[in-house]
Amino acid sequence: MKRQNNLAIFGSVLGLAAIGIAIDHTRHPLPEPVAAKQQDGSSDAGPAVDAGAEIAESPCAMDESPCGLSANPCGLSANPCSLE
């Protein structure tokens, strides 16, 4: 495949992705402003992250179920966020 074709394909895909992000951004709300490191539930607070869904950009900080499943699929006991 010629380089010019690659550039054209890559440019088109990047352009489409930018349009998609812009549409998504205008149609969805921003996270509510909370204290400094609490803006998205992704992380923050203390021992939070849970690869239990890599997800998890840290549902634990929000006192939510890792993996977003009700049955706690991560095989955890009481507190999914604690090392204790």
Partner: peptide
């Protein structure tokens, strides 16, 4: 539920 539901409902 959880973070995935929140992420889905927000801007990417």
């Amino acid at each position: 539920g959880g973070y995935p539901a929140k992420a889905l409902g927000r801007t990417v």
